[in-house]
């Protein structure tokens, strides 16, 4: 129950966590050259281990490897027993609890609350792609760093 309480705290403080993550993401994207020098593959295991610890504590993270927390009010959709990543199912109980696990608040009821406090809360409107099961257990941070750094580098590369 301790973990569950932390998870609810994280949703209540979604705005704070959002700002923190935005700063964190800027840094890890900027450090892309360093990651490259060390080698993303070599970093994968240790970084994933850290990520599992940190996000496990804060969000009950399931390490899907394609983090959607910024679009889901800091309420991890992989904790939904149906793994729904685009909104609640129709089975939510009148008290806002889960159909499958009645002792738990619906992940998406929390997601909606969390997203309303966030600056970029409207990201909850984005349609999420199906889960890529090959990414399971991998670091989402490293993936974001590599992809965003790559996306930034590309237009410049073309211009020069």
């Amino acid at each position: 129950m301790g973990m569950y309480a932390v998870r609810l705290w994280s949703v209540r403080h979604s705005r704070l966590l959002e700002s923190f993550y935005q700063g964190f993401e800027r840094i890890i994207v900027r450090l892309d050259p360093l990651w490259k020098r060390i080698g993303y593959e070599r970093l994968e295991q240790p970084v994933a281990a850290v990520e599992r610890q940190v996000k496990g504590l804060l969000f009950d993270c399931q390490m899907c490897g394609q983090c959607a927390l910024s679009s889901t009010g800091m309420s991890c959709p992989m904790n939904c027993p149906k793994n729904l990543r685009n909104g609640p199912c129709g089975g939510v109980r009148a008290n806002g609890h889960c159909e499958v696990k009645p002792e738990m608040k619906c992940v998406w009821v929390k997601a909606w609350e969390g997203s309303q406090q966030m600056l970029e809360g409207k990201a909850i409107l984005d349609v999420q792609k199906p889960v890529d099961n090959t990414l399971k257990g991998h670091s989402s941070w490293l993936r974001v760093a590599r992809e965003k750094a790559g996306a930034r580098a590309q237009p410049e590369g073309r211009a020069s």
Partner: peptide
């Protein structure tokens, strides 16, 4: 549809798949 949870039926031991969700 998403589908009701397996716990609602008479074979609650079945594995829920949920590879996609109703939106995807």
């Amino acid at each position: 549809l998403t589908g009701d949870g397996v716990q609602a039926g008479d074979q609650p031991g079945a594995k829920p798949v949920f590879d996609l969700d109703s939106t995807s």
